[in-house]
Write a protein that binds this DNA or RNA. Structure first.
Length: 922
RNA sequence: GGGCGCUUAGCUCAGUUGGGAGAGCACCGGCCUUACAAGCCGGGGGUCGCAGGUUCGAACCCUGCAGCGCCCACCA
């Protein structure tokens, strides 16, 4: 073993070995345990969110595997319709080509080719994270089997009347030229204007106040070309007389009615709303209520079509806006303009402003699917951790809208519907089935629907589709329902909810019993990591390290907004002046666990990972110490356990209890913290140090006891830590395990340690606390008095009780070694102590004779500080005890505890005060 | 407009049923003490956002307020 922990030397080779050996595949004898990986985009790359999520899943999986469960971590990738298609289209663009140039078949082949070449990247990165997924079962959402499941689900839903096709107003992305679901639209607040437009009253009508027009207020003047009415509130007295009359739509010349509808807010704007049923969701609904005609004025790219007057045809919607406003101005029909903040709908992929647009699309009727899915969470068949996310889930599910699932893309699962020349639609698993079922001969030409299904439609089938459904497979019976889903709160609606609905519908089972929701990974300033902001970190760079120049280049490469380059470069040079050192996978994983507290977002800070890299080094070196002291030694034979040996074993049982609890409650942070504390603050800081005097001066049986305990605790700690830091623990374990005649090939298949309450030893714990008290007391005097660390000093113990004397007897060697003493002795009751610096351990005095070591004034100052501390405590406790209501009403045990505190503090205070007087008199 | 979350040491965060305010990092002082300088030893530092209430007792429970963040929603 190297002296310093070098992760790069151990990680990659180990993973290859694990994978080759087939140890990731299910093999436990116990109950099944299964996690489905949220399938990443097949052509994507691993970002911090993945790395975080994969670490948590791997910890759970490795833990359960070591607990003996028959454990499957199902891996796979998603075809990610829009995202992947966009990447390939961008590549074509650089060659001055479009997908239309290639044609559908060639284009789809190109995407498959791209998937072949780049599809391995993310799975390679998953391997670098140490993820123990079962590669032999890897799936892809567009592989044959999964595609069959998708078609099967579509057909069955259609047959049950839950999938329908219809002309509806949908969210239309005019850049990607496809429909989007409600969830794929992000509403962003933006600054805009509220324009007032004058609509002349038709037929020469005037209002009772003499006006010959109405003023409507709108944020979208260009859509006036498609107006079908003007609406006012039915109770709005200002306009009551005009309801039923008409206005003449300017620029168009159409006569449109003035209608009353209580959707209108009389307080807003002018109280008159222009109604454009084909281009606004509210207006659409109103158009339905009032039977208004629909004037679709847009092409698929949101330029104006032939429905509008010639002057506007072909204009982009924003150019049309300017033109309409200018033309209205010219004829005196433009009113005031007000600044106005509005929510602008943008496509989450393209960023384009989404247009409500009337098209034929496929929909899933959701109400019937949602009902049992709501119930499953209500009854606890599915539980969310943290629980508050159940409310998020319920609120969306209870108001659920029908789901538009067709996309006007080429990459994805083609909709299994065929059209006959007469317009009839036939849905089936494939064309042959359609023909057979409906008796359509070869003479009837059928054309398949050109659209594909939204990616989330197939993702919704992930838990059962990957296990072989619709076949009744062994895997499905064994691993479904799965146990835990680990995912971010950003896809509860997109994915989690839809999985629950679809899985219940088609298997009658819930997809998973627990949904663990983790936070999003943000940068050290709390900003969301993104390519465009250039603040993202690549997990691989944290593992392997990266030079500053390369990091700058990487962050500024291929930016959508090149003007950001300077800023990103500056920030990068500021935040990472020396680039990023190689931390290794284990340190990264430990950091993720430590940051995963309660499902809230986490800030990723280089300081944290540095600390945990140091922790890995600490454990590595502790192992080095153990190895140096045990490899050549005889561990078999009679043993005589020291208090320290019993203490560390006892402390370890408590670690196990806490870790077990942490796994049960998904508190990865608690687990990481307890591991850190135990390894560093107990095993290394104290136990290892306590073995040193024994290994030097102890009897053979005492030495054997220490050596055995060192190895046994280390070996077991490695198993506890393995799910978090698999590489380090495997490497060290292979060196350590043989010392205990454990000969398994890998730590990952060894048993996870279980607490043994019989090995908890409260006496040993109390005694080591006492030992620590004495040592800390001496160290405090040393530190505060600036006694050189190398100087061995004399220490006396005084007063105290029999137990203190007995403890000294047993622990003399420990104290002398760890406090670096020249001598240590108990002072007889009748001998008076020399002038000393003092520390109290219980009511025993720890005395460091001042001789010429200690400065009188410094000791006085130190005493004053301690006296003040005790005085404050006495004061606080006495105040509490003086309160009769406290002594009367608080539980007796609490009162007793306070009394005990008072006694102890008072006694200490007295001793210290006497001591102070003595020193002051010198 | 509705809902949720957060506010604890300089920074990032723990604090499980209400009963002695914690960790890591940073900071100050001292050490190359034979596992580890990626280390060791000692130390300083908080009116727990604000205001009320419940209680013998509140960081924790209740109400209100403020600030920050997120989600949902049809006010043109």
């Amino acid at each position: 073993m190297d002296k310093t922990y070098q992760p790069k030397d151990i990680e990659q080779a180990l993973y290859a070995e694990w994978e080759r050996a087939g140890w990731f595949a299910p093999q436990g004898k116990g109950n099944s345990f299964c996690i489905m990986i949220p399938p990443p985009n097949v052509t994507g790359s691993l970002h911090m969110g993945h790395a975080f999520q994969d670490t948590l899943m791997d910890a759970l999986i490795r833990h359960q595997r070591m607990c003996g469960r028959n454990t499957l971590w199902q891996v796979g990738t998603d075809h990610a319709g829009i995202a992947t298609q966009m990447v390939v289209e961008r590549q074509l663009e650089q060659q001055q080509q479009s997908r239309a140039d290639l044609g559908r078949e060639t284009f789809v082949e190109r995407v498959w080719a791209w998937k072949q070449t780049s599809g391995g990247q993310i799975t390679e990165q998953l391997r670098r994270m140490g993820a123990s997924v079962d590669w032999s079962r890897e799936r892809f959402t567009m592989d044959d089997g999964f595609s069959r499941a998708v078609a099967e689900v579509f057909v069955r839903l259609y047959e049950d009347g839950l999938i329908y096709r219809g002309k509806r107003l949908v969210n239309w992305d005019p850049v990607l030229k496809t429909a989007l679901s409600d969830l794929e639209v992000e509403n962003v607040e933006e600054k805009g204007s509220l324009w007032e437009l004058r609509y002349p009253l038709a037929d020469g009508r005037r209002t009772s106040t003499g006006d010959d027009h109405l003023i409507v207020a709108t944020t979208r003047p260009e859509t006036m070309l498609g107006d079908a009415a003007v609406a006012v509130h039915p109770d709005d007295e200002r306009y009551a007389e005009l309801v039923g009359a008409f206005v003449e739509l300017p620029l168009v010349g159409r006569r449109i009615p003035i209608i009353a509808d209580d959707y209108v807010d009389a307080e807003f704007g002018t109280g008159c709303v222009k109604i454009t049923p084909a281009h606004d969701f509210n207006d659409y609904a109103m158009g339905q209520r009032h039977d208004l005609p629909m004037h679709n004025i847009f092409e698929t790219d949101a330029s104006l079509n032939d429905e509008v007057p010639e002057a506007y045809r072909g204009l982009d919607r924003y150019d049309a806006r300017k033109q309409v406003l200018a033309d209205l101005e010219a004829i005196g029909l433009r009113g005031e303009t007000h600044d106005h903040k509005l929510m602008v709908p943008r496509g989450d992929r393209s960023g384009a402003v989404v247009e409500p647009y009337l098209t034929d699309q496929w929909f899933v009727a959701m109400a019937e699917l949602a009902r049992p899915a709501i119930e499953a969470v209500e009854t606890g068949r599915v539980r969310f951790v943290p629980k508050q996310y159940e409310n998020t889930y319920f609120s969306w599910m209870r108001e659920i809208q029908d789901w538009c699932i067709s996309r006007q893309l080429w990459w994805g699962h083609r909709i299994p519907a065929w059209y006959a020349p007469d317009g009839a639609v036939y849905v089936g698993r494939d064309e042959a089935e359609v023909r057979a079922t409906h008796g359509l001969g070869a003479d009837v030409p059928l054309e398949q629907d050109p659209d594909v299904l939204e990616t989330w439609f197939s993702s919704a089938l992930w838990t059962f589709g990957t296990l072989g459904w619709p076949e009744d497979t062994e895997a499905l019976r064994t691993f479904h329902p799965t146990d835990v889903l680990v995912t971010g709160h950003d896809i509860i609606f997109f994915w989690v909810a839809r999985m629950i609905m679809m899985t219940l519908r088609f298997t009658g089972e819930v997809p998973f019993e627990t949904v663990y929701i983790h936070g999003l990974v943000r940068d050290a300033e709390g900003q969301k990591m993104s390519k465009s902001k250039g603040n993202g970190l690549d997990p691989l760079d944290l593992i392997e390290g990266i030079e500053l120049e390369e990091l700058v280049a990487k962050r500024t490469r291929g930016l959508m907004q090149p003007q950001m380059e300077k800023r990103i470069e500056k920030a990068t040079r500021r935040d990472f002046p020396d680039g990023i050192p190689a931390f290794g996978t284990d340190a990264l994983r430990f950091t993720f666990c430590a940051l995963a507290s309660t499902g809230r977002d986490v800030r990723f800070d280089l300081n944290r990972i540095t600390g945990y890299r140091n922790f890995c080094n600490k454990l590595w070196n502790a192992a080095n110490y153990v190895r140096l002291n045990t490899a050549e030694a005889e561990l078999e034979g009679e043993i005589e356990l020291s208090t320290a040996d019993r203490w560390i074993v006892s402390r370890f049982q408590k670690l196990l209890t806490d870790v077990h609890f942490a796994y049960e409650t998904f508190r990865f942070d608690v687990m990481a913290q307890r591991l850190y504390e135990f390894v560093w603050n107990e095993y290394c800081d104290w136990y290892l140090e306590l073995t040193k005097p024994v290994l030097r001066d102890g009897s053979p049986s005492q030495q054997r006891a220490a050596r055995r305990t060192l190895v046994e605790v280390l070996e077991a700690v490695l198993r506890v830590a393995h799910p978090v830091i698999p590489y380090l623990t495997e490497t060290v374990w292979r060196e350590v395990a043989p010392l205990l005649d454990r000969d398994g090939p890998t730590i990952m298949l060894e048993a996870f340690p279980v607490a043994d309450d019989g090995r908890v030893d409260e006496d040993a714990e109390a005694e080591i606390e006492w030992v620590k008290g004495v040592i800390l007391g001496v160290r405090n005097i040393r530190g505060e008095m600036n006694v050189p660390p190398g100087k061995a000093i004399d220490v006396l113990l005084a007063e105290g009780n029999e137990s203190d004397r007995a403890r000294l007897e047993r622990n003399q060697g420990f104290l002398v070694q760890l406090a670096r003493l020249q001598s240590l002795a108990y002072l007889d009751a009748d001998t008076s102590a020399p002038a000393s610096a003092i520390q109290l351990v219980g009511d025993m005095k720890v005395l460091v004779p001042m001789a010429d070591l200690i400065d009188r004034d410094a000791e006085l100052a130190r005493l004053d500080k301690e006296i003040e501390r005790r005085r404050a405590e006495v004061e606080r406790v006495e105040k509490k005890l003086a309160n009769e209501r406290f002594t009367a009403k608080a539980p007796a045990a609490v009162v007793e505890k306070e009394r005990g505190k008072r006694e102890e503090a008072l006694a200490a205070l007295q001793t210290l005060a006497a001591q102070r007087e003595e020193i002051a008199a010198l």
